[in-house]
Design a binder for these strands. Sequence first.
RNA 1: CGCGGGGUAGAGCAGUUGGCAGCUCGCCAGGCCCAUAACCUGGAGGUCGCCGGUUCAAAUCCGGCCCCCGCAA
Length: 321
Amino acid sequence: MPKKIKIIFLGTSAFGVPLYEAIGQDARFELVLTVSQPDARAGRGRQIRPSTIKTIAQKHNWPVITPAGIKDASNTISSLRPDLLVLCSYGQIVPSEILAIPRFKALNIHASLLPRYRGAACVQAAILNGDQESGLTLMQMDTGLDTGPIIAQKKIKLNGRETSPLLLEILSQAAPDFFRENIILWLEQKITPRPQVEKDASYAPKLTKEDGLIDWQQPNIKIDRQVRALLPWPGTYTFLPDRKYLKILSGFPGQPVAAAKPGEIQYIGNEFAVACLKSYFILGKIQLSGGRPLEAKIFFNGHKEYLGKNFFSAPDCKIES
RNA sequence: CGCGGGGUAGAGCAGUUGGCAGCUCGCCAGGCCCAUAACCUGGAGGUCGCCGGUUCAAAUCCGGCCCCCGCAA
């Protein structure tokens, strides 16, 4: 390839950073523009802050724009005459008029083995469903939500103890090599994308705060998956017997038992555990609102009054601070 | 000015009609026991976040400051 490939990168979250920097620093490519989501109020104090990708762009002095709607950037994008458009967790559907601009098309790197888990919470979905494997998909974009034909995939085996932040990190770090291994073949048109098998498709819609509420009537395996999957947001939570909001940050499933009263807090084998459906969930780290994260053992050592009482997971418990 | 909780012994917490600072765990010493994460006895350990004010007397009331955290995104 005699000439540099002109790339426009679309991304917002930290997940895309390794890939983004790899592209920006690759001599074969010329990063002509970065498109990210607009600055938004976030965090305590609701300060206005830029997206992670925008922050990285500014650090390298790479050109970046943050249109409210990607359509607003349509003219800017076409005037740069990009050869390729690469998207990684950008957060907006890109319309066909923009997808049609680059001659090597618009590609998306998605953190699941499509057609499984189209959508935003793809990594969480893999853990929530107890999948044996996860991975990355390089795909050609169309106007649907992660529906375009697949160019390449990379599988990652799961050991069943991953948390979302960890798996996200693993996939994020794997993205640059995965991209480099396939992009040249793509540019040389040695790969024919294959359409997704529609009947195998599933969706992982954005999570909500409600998804984090623990139902102690479930088997401990499910609760364990929920705890690992929903970090760091929305997080899993329950309510103490006096209805204080309590985050469950970690734990693991205990041995099955016949008679367990779901929700009951118990001291078992030198650990603090909560009864769920025919089993116990051993508590690891927990966090009260206003408090820092700490081992359940440390907290309950000073609160023996909770033993034998029940956690609430009733919907009438308001989420309060 | 988005809403809110908190800084008290090594850890987690209680303690506002102001009056010599408490609980659980841990730690040290000893005891019981085949043994123990169990139990019993004794012990060490605190400028009550910082500064100032009110008062005979402040962890507790008033003012200012620093730090930590939850919700919300």
